[in-house]
């Protein structure tokens, strides 16, 4: 990789996720997958592994695959174990002289397939130390089944299993801090990123994850116009607001050392991120001011904690 990132040069590479897939307009997932796969060196092959998800049903509907690389989907909760199996096969076949070239192994799963049902499989694969990258495209709910809450859904968010009613006020619990849990696995590289701006952050972190030996994990913010209830043209705007309100900080942990990747020039109030999204609409009703205050306090607390880690 050239030391200077150049988006124009990167997008001139042949696309590894081709157009014509069935993801919604304004969905973060396709942008993320393209962005991560672009970080592969041109000459290297990859096997893409996918958990059952919007991404899976939209990119590999028989008989059409959107991937130029080999691809495997097996089930919802086992994408990390599946990637382990492909990597194990690669090691075995390479040892026996049946495969010669470099092949990289990249898994994509949503937050449901990562934070929840695929959590055990992920933890096992990370602990075993397979040479693989696990990418969670985090859209903060089970979107493929129609917007149900996951342990990644933020507090107060409306989903179809945390509806707003005379008593219900959205999700009761805060989002699980998965990145910290992955850091606790003592793996070589863990990062949080988002498809933002010229995609430099996503690209750089993807490259590091792919070309660092051992298990690496990327948590990538993936706005969902259906689930978050925003106009689909606003993908990059919503993403930017998540950065600038510190709701979704960009950072990485290399060999246990934390680095902050982005500090907003001016930290915006959390309501700037919440307001454009229908899933938080009830928070702006009269009498619910405490929700926004609570949300702000939580973001502040997490941000301070991150700054302590990074020493920034």
């Amino acid at each position: 990789m050239s030391t200077v990132y150049n988006l124009k040069r990167e997008v001139e590479k042949p696309a590894r996720l081709t157009g014509g897939h069935r993801l919604c307009a304004g969905c973060g997932a396709g942008v993320i997958v393209s962005g991560v796969l672009r970080a592969l060196n041109k000459e290297d092959r990859a096997v893409v592994v996918n958990a059952t998800s919007c991404l899976e049903v939209s990119t590999f509907m028989y008989p059409y695959t959107a991937y130029m690389d080999s691809y495997i989907h097996s089930a919802f909760e086992n994408s990390a174990a599946t990637c382990s199996g492909v990597e194990a096969a690669y090691n075995a076949l390479k040892r026996r002289g049946k495969v010669e070239e470099t092949v990289k192994f990249i898994t994509f799963a949503g937050d449901g397939g990562t934070y929840d049902i695929g959590f055990q499989s992920l933890s096992g694969a990370m602990e075993r130390g397979h040479d693989m990258v696990y990418v969670c495209y985090d859209n903060e709910a089970y979107m493929n089944t129609g917007i149900q809450r996951s342990s990644s859904t933020p507090r107060f968010a409306r989903t179809t299993t945390t509806p707003i009613g005379s008593v219900g006020q959205g999700k009761k619990q805060n989002k699980k801090d998965l990145v910290e849990i992955l850091v606790a696995h003592n793996i070589p590289y863990v990062a949080q990123t988002a498809p933002i701006g010229n995609f430099k952050d996503l690209h750089t972190k993807s490259y590091k994850a792919i070309y660092t030996e051992g298990p690496c994990f990327l948590n990538v913010l993936s706005p969902c116009p259906r689930g978050w209830d925003y106009p689909m043209a606003k993908l990059s705007e919503i993403t930017k607001l998540a950065m600038d309100t510190c709701v979704w900080p960009l950072y990485e942990v290399e060999e246990g050392v934390w680095h902050l990747s982005y500090t907003p020039k001016k930290k915006l109030p959390v309501e700037d991120f919440l307001r454009p999204q229908g899933r938080f609409k009830h928070m702006f009703q009269k009498g619910n001011e405490w929700m926004i205050e609570d949300a702000q306090a939580y973001v502040n607390q997490k941000w301070e904690r991150l700054l302590e880690h990074t020493g920034a």
């Binding site: 174990a81 382990s84 199996g85 194990a88 096969a89 055990q120």
Partner: peptide, 28 residues
Amino acid sequence: VNTEYVTVESEHSSMSVCIAAQAAGARS
């Protein structure tokens, strides 16, 4: 033997590994 011996965290993952490895071209 020089089998790639994958000590998984469950039988669910054990079968997942076998599925993926066999699909990748390996006898599992």
